[in-house]
Design a binder for these strands. Structure first.
Length: 835
DNA sequence: CTCGTGTGGTAGC
DNA sequence: ATCGCTACCACACGAG
């Protein structure tokens, strides 16, 4: 919306609304009067909507009053009551209950954005785009079937629409998308404006944010028949999807008073309620939130004094103004209140609070003070601020109120300073930067140190001095950590296809980028975590596994990316049924129009011709062999790395972790060294093969697909081409796994495994190795190792424990090394195919 | 030391 | 039931 429109609506807040509440006076006459008044004071009006009669049904953003003004001032008729049928040409609504849907089925029912866009573009834009019953009219039967079945059927990640459907309902996805799009818009809007400089560092920062935004919007658009007496100020209200282990996205201040917090599960929140008080749960209103946010940003951007309106999130912005833009504190306060008033007005009742100070960190803290429904100005200047006020200000914050201090940092601070409760305590305790840096690390230590003095660190200040650069996208990724339940690799491959398609066609296309590097991160159920986590379809406790791959040539080819992903999946030791989450990132984005890119391609093709790049080992030349060395060799290699490191974070029992570390060092000192030598050897071969041959991307793709097919039959039990091998009369590897696990757990406590059992187990392992299924042995070894670690602090001295240790080190690991030709065999196959 | 890879942490509701 | 995302910085570690 342009400035002009804003000024028009701004003028409305001078009290003329009383006219329109008086229903006895003929509305139309009033509207004309209203319009004339505008004209007489020299305000611009238009005839854009001439001949149109518009009626507003229910809650909308912008609100009814704003729409009225927009209509009237642009020459349209505003209908206050829909008494005479057919008199309205357009009905504006955000959503319609089924009954109204029927009633209005012959009207043009559109969402308010239509009007906004019409005025913005100064022409009548086609209403069909904005129709809210369009889909019903066009394909009523299909819509009903799909929506009703979608409501009833449980979430299924094999459904081709799963990804889209999931994202549609995910608040965090929405938040991320909104943020990205706001940043993009910022770049477009401000790219020609000169950057602010450090030297002229006398800025006033306004941090503006809605109070419990989601909850407010959900309340405003609630089904009033369902909640006739709901009181936003008194009744605790939360926004969520479900009932028990559903996340609370937002809760109102009545709920917060009872100790309920965002992110809490509904069940937990209910336990905090006093007797007789009930918790009201409201559904998300994503679309209306989006509309409210548009109004919010439009208003902020229309305010001349703001040099920048920096987006923080959908409902939160940092406004930067020069210190001398306002005469004094009084006028500044007036401005703040005017902004608050206008936003409340134009969003039909959403409240913002404002924190004002001269650094980012102080503005943010001031905002916390301002909430709910207020303005707080904090002056860090010692002279003008009473020392008592200072102490009181800092004393009213908890440690994690400080930006940058989250769960983990809080824990570190608590551990080091058990007595420190408030930021004021911390200010007094930590006088020097060194002690903070020693606990929190270099950067974070400095950041906290500065923040306690009310100053921004350089990284935070970038948003002021170099926002365009900061908002430029450097990576693209998607995460899915909910609803992931797969049976086998076939299903996972399909899902990876969908992800790849989404990333390529939705993200790369939107930002017009190519990627040259992919990271795949998998979440695998922890060995000791329940198969069904507490949260329905949740991920539960998981171990993360990541791997990344360079593509050599930047690409946006979905096929190549999908193939690479499938391939990468197989380099990670995560069986399909244990998978609980997937994350895919494109790390090194390349602009296709960038001349640098053509250089990359040129350089690459030259590289293939001969190994002329002796000085610098080029990433692109290496990446070509990556499929080979990744598939086979990286598996054990990676495992080594991961197992060595991950226990530190997995379970935080300090007593336990020392023993575990010692043990795992020992475990893997033997395992990977030999295999790694193999890898290096084979790498040389691979290089030769590649160097002797010029490759095209398509050939590469073909080869990888075949490599995958090879692996597919080989790596996972579900579609093994080999004859089944039995252990204790069981052939299913997963079941054998859990059987062995139980067996180990039981016998650790006592004298170790029975000789006869052990004999059969060894026989089984031998067979696995002999039939090229050494990866199963690896998994069993891993599992046993984890079990040992888990039980080390309790049974570390038991006879059985030592017994199992010996079995693992003296038998199982050498077994894997003995059969390391397995890895080579496969690679040989690959190379042969390649030539 | 520099580079690349993998991991951890934080923010918004 | 339930929708636990995503960009980006900082860091540790190993290879060269």
């Amino acid at each position: 919306m342009s400035n002009k429109d804003n000024k028009v609506t701004e003028e409305n807040s001078t009290g003329r609304y009383s006219y329109f509440y008086n229903k006895k006076i003929k509305q139309a006459e009033q509207d004309i009067k209203f319009r004339k008044q505008y004209e007489t004071i020299g305000k611009q009006t238009s005839q854009l909507l001439k001949g149109l009669t518009i009626y507003v049904n229910g809650h909308t953003i912008p609100g009814r009053l704003q729409i009225h003004d927009m209509v009237v001032l642009n020459g349209g008729n505003f209908l206050h009551h829909l008494s005479s049928k057919g008199s309205a040409t357009h009905i504006i609504a955000s959503s319609l209950p089924p009954k109204k849907r029927l009633e209005f089925k012959n009207y043009k029912v559109i969402n308010p954005q239509w009007l906004v866009d019409c005025i913005k573009q100064q022409k009548i834009v086609p209403w069909q785009e904005y129709s809210i019953i369009k889909s019903d009219i066009e394909q009523p039967s299909i819509l009903k079937i799909s929506s009703s079945s979608a409501n009833k059927t449980p979430p299924n990640c094999n459904d081709p629409n799963f990804l889209i459907d999931y994202f549609k309902h995910s608040r965090l996805h929405h938040l991320s998308e909104w943020k990205a799009s706001l940043r993009q818009k910022f770049i477009e809007l401000y790219q020609d404006i000169p950057l602010l400089t450090h030297s002229n560092s006398s800025y006033t920062i306004l941090h503006i944010d809605f109070d419990c935004f989601f909850a407010t919007v959900a309340y405003l658009f609630r089904d009033k028949k369902k909640f006739p007496t709901l009181d936003f100020d008194k009744d605790p209200i939360v926004v969520c999807h479900g009932v028990k282990n559903s996340d609370i996205a937002s809760c109102n201040y009545a709920a917060r008073k009872l100790g309920i917090k965002n992110g809490m599960w509904v069940g937990t929140a209910e336990k905090m309620l006093p007797n007789g008080i009930k918790l009201t749960t409201l559904p998300y209103e994503f679309e209306n939130i989006d509309n409210g946010s548009k109004a919010f940003y439009t208003i902020l951007q229309s305010i001349e004094q703001f040099y920048y309106v920096l987006p923080v999130s959908i409902d939160e912005a940092i406004c930067v103004m020069s210190k001398n833009a306002m005469e004094n504190k009084q006028t500044l306060l007036q401005l703040c209140n005017a902004v608050r008033q206008r936003i409340k007005h134009e969003t039909s009742g959403c409240i913002v609070s404002i924190g004002v100070s001269d650094s980012l960190v102080l503005a943010r803290l001031a905002l916390k003070m301002a909430k709910p429904n207020g303005v707080f100005m904090f002056d860090n200047d010692n002279e003008s601020q009473d020392l008592n006020d200072m102490n009181q200000f800092w004393g009213s914050f908890k440690l994690d109120d400080l930006p940058g201090v989250g769960r983990s940092t809080l824990k570190k601070l608590r551990y080091k300073y058990p007595k420190v409760k408030t930021l004021q305590d911390l200010r007094q305790t930590c006088q020097d930067i060194i002690s903070l840096q020693s606990i929190l690390g270099n950067k974070l230590g400095e950041k906290v140190y500065l923040a306690l003095r009310g100053e921004d660190d350089e990284e935070s200040a970038r948003i002021i001095y170099d926002p365009i650069n900061m908002f430029q996208r450097k990576s693209i990724s998607i995460d899915i950590n909910w609803g992931i339940r797969f049976k086998d690799m076939v299903e996972i491959d399909k899902f990876l296809d969908i992800c790849s398609d989404y990333l390529v066609n939705k993200k790369l296309a939107e930002y017009n980028k190519l990627t040259s590097s992919i990271t795949l991160k998998l979440m695998k159920r922890c060995v000791d975590a329940p198969v069904d986590p507490p949260k329905y379809m949740g991920m539960g406790r998981c171990d993360p596994f990541t791997t990344s791959s360079r593509l050599g040539v930047p690409t946006n080819d979905g096929g190549i990316i999908a193939t690479e992903l499938k391939h990468m999946f197989r380099t990670l030791p995560v069986p399909p049924v244990e998978l609980r989450g997937i994350s895919i990132q494109f790390n090194k984005l390349v602009d296709p129009d960038d001349p640098k890119n053509s250089n990359v391609k040129k350089g690459l093709s030259l590289l293939f011709q001969k190994d002329q790049v002796t000085t610098t080992p080029s990433p692109s030349s290496r990446s070509i062999e990556s499929p080979l060395h990744n598939v086979e060799s990286n598996d054990p290699h990676r495992k080594y790395k991961r197992l060595k490191r991950s226990p530190v974070k997995e379970r935080e029992d300090q007593l336990e972790s020392n023993q575990r570390n010692a043990f795992q060092q020992q475990f893997f000192q033997e395992l990977p060294t030999q295999i790694r030598k193999d890898v290096q050897h084979d790498l040389k071969i691979t290089r030769k093969v590649n160097d002797s041959k010029l490759k095209r991307m398509k050939e590469e793709l073909q080869r990888r697909e075949n490599a995958i097919r090879n692996m597919n039959s080989h790596f996972m039990n579900s579609d093994s081409i080999f004859v089944p091998i039995k252990f204790q009369n069981e052939t299913n590897f997963e079941k054998i796994c859990s059987m062995v696990n139980d067996w180990v757990r039981e016998t650790i406590k006592e004298k170790g495994p029975h000789e006869r059992d052990l004999h059969f187990f060894k026989k089984y392992l031998n067979k696995l190795c002999d039939s090229d299924r050494v990866h199963f042995v690896l998994r069993l070894a891993d599992m046993i190792s984890v079990t040992l670690n888990l039980m080390a602090h309790k049974y570390g001295n038991a006879e059985g424990f030592t017994e199992w240790e010996i079995i693992l080190i003296k038998f199982i690991i050498p077994l894997m090394n003995r059969n390391r030709h397995t890895f080579r065999t496969e690679r040989k196959l690959d190379i042969e195919y390649d030539i």
